[in-house]
Nucleic acid binder design. Structure first.
Length: 686
DNA sequence: GAGCACTGC
């Protein structure tokens, strides 16, 4: 017998593309759970976790670390904290905290639990996310983002206010979670009374238990049933040569032959989504089908304008079937109601850190088995469903069992700097669930050294590294902010650092007339050095605060509001750091000094024009092309040297790095430390 | 020939 969440290869049907939708073939469900839908369980006492209340409290009484395995809908995120309160874990002013990867989850969980507890306790359930908190000293249950808990360790290294720390959604293995696992293990050595609960949806709970196990306390694992409806999983017998066409055809076949129920299609990129919608549209004209039922095709990805993101969440009007074409955003971040059919192309666009070049790259790759199962599960949230995998069973078996943890795929500079700020100098000896790549670690140490954050021995440099570690921004931006103080361009550096944390402060043009209007509007505010001073220009006037002005000038008002909020927070950090004296803040600085500060942080991201007309990075000698997404590509002046914020891969020109966030600079500003003509970096920090 | 995996401090 296989287990919930695992595929059942021997019992899944194998189909050809043509018979993919034939109901005569036998197939099996992807989970064994047959449980009533949530709507029939208004009483939280009926949640699957309820049967485990005593077991959980007993386990925690006797084991300092407990791993809870529970599928979606088991009720662990809402009920477990309440059990902890009733079990006495919040006595003596202690708090119980539950971490979540996403802000929205913190807010909704806190609201929900607050409404479930006795009225006298409602105000003792709160949440804390960046810019927003409803917690105080009377709080007993606190939901917070895992990133915020990491930052709390900077001010309270032992997390002394908490008796129990619950790390939820641990199977995601994001960088903050892995950092927390290491920190919690360390904290437990000094605070053995601290209890740790790891909640994970997958069955590899054993690795969590093992990580925290000691000879006296081996830890324990508690499994809880989920509440998921069965989903039939179907594979192709022969690989699909064109997943866009395959997806479009499958959607139309579902529409023609299946009873009502919405469709969710997983594709790797926004571009794929737009062209697959067009393709489905055209195929539909040729072969209508659907027995008079309407089919509405909707895109869903993060970069979509906000007003277009709401449609997939509306209930379908009668006689209409929604088909939502989505990226991984629909895998974990958001949940669409009423999805009964999932079509999975089997690909994902993911970043990985190229430590030889020192840049993060985005590549389309095969998804993992666990994410394929997660996608499948999206068909069984309200009723039994079906999942059509646009690949063969052998292909599924060739997928990695799970997505590699973020720590193995990302730049480690901020991670290392945080550890050093917390006093962990020997980062190689810090206990982690998964080891990062040695090359990525070496690159980050080299970068931190080049930025002056650490010395040759790997120790934090006072007045630079310690301050950089406090900033909630990437290390390159932290360095820019610190350098801007002596240059007198802090106001602008704050604008640039804040802008880097939103997708884009500009809106996209859809039609060609819009494009003309947009070019005219942006042409009036753009700075010919490129993206950075353009963003400074936008924020220098307060015109953006008017929504009408934004609409007319293709500015993203919502993004700019967020930029202003981030800028304020960063400004508070800066003022605290410089004891309240910041020359130039609130005044316009010299444009040249703004770019000089930027280059101090982005020494590794400088490129020089070669005689053949290509830009090559000064460090690494890689050819880079300015992305059309950059203002510099369209409005920039000729420049021998440029600085860029990040790189992206162009799928049409494989291997050629595109750069965005580009500004023209004077090469002399970068020459000292960028590695040109000298061997950059340091050797060993073991 | 036309821009955009996804979180988070």
């Amino acid at each position: 017998m296989w287990r919930p969440g695992e595929a059942a290869p021997s019992r899944s049907s194998t189909l050809t593309a043509d018979s993919l939708l034939s109901s005569s073939l036998t197939s099996s469900s992807d989970t064994h759970a047959t449980i009533l839908p949530p709507s029939q369980h208004p009483n939280p006492n009926a949640l699957p976790i309820q049967a485990h209340r005593k077991q959980l409290l007993y386990a925690l009484e006797h084991n300092p670390v407990v791993v809870v395995v529970g599928e979606t809908g088991s009720g662990k995120s809402t009920q477990l904290p309440q059990y902890l309160v009733s079990g006495g874990w919040t006595e003596n002013n202690f708090q119980v905290c539950v971490t979540q990867p996403r802000r929205l989850a913190c807010v909704t969980l806190a609201q929900r639990v607050s409404s479930e507890v006795p009225r006298s306790m409602a105000s003792q359930v709160g949440y804390a996310v960046r810019f927003e908190a409803t917690t105080d000293s009377s709080t007993k249950i606190k939901y917070l983002t895992d990133g915020l808990l990491v930052r709390e360790t900077l001010t309270d290294a032992l997390l002394a206010q908490y008796s129990v720390v619950v790390v939820d959604e641990a199977h995601e293995r994001n960088l903050n979670q892995d950092l927390l696992f290491g920190l919690l293990k360390k904290i437990r050595k000094q605070r053995p009374e601290l209890r740790v609960v790891i909640c994970s949806a997958t069955i590899n709970a054993e690795s969590f238990r093992e990580f925290f196990a000691t000879p006296e306390h081996p830890g324990c694992i508690v499994s809880i049933d989920g509440r998921q409806h069965p989903v039939e999983t179907m594979y192709l017998t022969t690989p699909c040569p064109d997943y866009l066409r395959g997806a479009a055809e499958t959607v139309l076949k579902i529409h023609a032959s299946e009873p009502s129920g919405d469709i969710l299609i997983f594709l790797p990129t926004a571009e794929d989504i737009e062209s697959c919608i067009r393709m489905t549209e055209e195929l539909k004209k040729a072969t209508p089908g659907g027995r008079g039922m309407q089919l509405s095709l909707l895109p869903l990805y993060a970069a979509l304008p906000h007003h277009m993101q709401t449609a997939p969440f509306q209930k379908s009007p009668p006689n209409t079937r929604k088909a939502t074409f989505a990226t991984t955003i629909a895998e974990t971040s958001v949940t669409l109601p009423d999805v009964k059919f999932v079509v999975d192309a089997g690909f994902v666009k993911q970043p990985y850190f190229d430590s030889t070049k020192g840049f993060e790259r985005l590549l389309v790759t095969a998804t993992s088995q666990s994410s394929a199962r997660q996608r499948t599960g999206r068909a069984g949230r309200t009723a039994p469903g079906k999942c059509y995998r646009l690949y063969t069973h052998d292909t599924f078996n060739s997928f990695l069992p799970s997505t590699p943890p973020e720590i193995t795929r990302t730049s480690l500079s901020n991670f290392v700097l945080t550890l050093k700020t917390l006093g962990v100098d020997n980062v190689m000896s810090f206990d982690l669930l998964s080891a990062p790549s040695v090359n990525a670690m070496a690159f980050s140490l080299e970068e931190l050294h080049a930025l002056g954050a650490i010395d040759e021995k790997g120790k934090l440099v006072p007045g630079v590294g310690d301050l950089m570690g406090e900033f909630p921004v990437e290390v390159k931006f932290a360095k820019m902010l610190i350098e801007s103080v002596s240059l007198g361009s802090t106001e602008e550096a704050l604008s640039i650092a804040a802008c880097s944390q939103v997708q884009s402060i500009f809106l996209f043009a859809r039609s060609s007339t819009q494009k003309r209007d947009r070019d005219a509007a942006i042409g009036a505010i753009v700075h010919d050095s490129g993206d950075h001073l353009t963003c400074v220009n936008v924020l220098r006037s307060n015109d953006w605060r008017s929504m009408d002005y934004c609409r007319e000038n293709f500015l993203n008002h919502k993004a700019l509001m967020k930029v202003a909020e981030i800028k304020n927070q960063l400004k508070r950090f800066m003022l605290k750091m410089t004891a309240g004296s910041l020359p130039g803040v609130g005044e316009d600085g010299d444009d040249e000094l703004v770019l000089k500060a930027l280059v101090k942080g982005f020494v590794f991201n400088v490129a020089r024009m070669m005689p053949d007309g290509n830009y090559r990075t000064v460090r690494g000698n890689n050819v880079v092309e300015v992305s059309r997404a950059s203002m510099f590509a369209e409005f920039g002046k000729h420049a021998e040297y440029i600085v860029f914020e990040h790189t992206e891969d162009n799928p049409r020109k494989y291997g050629l790095l595109q750069v965005c966030g580009v500004s023209a600079i004077n090469g002399n500003w970068a020459r000292s430390k960028s590695g040109e003509g000298e061997r950059g970096g340091v050797s060993v920090f073991m």
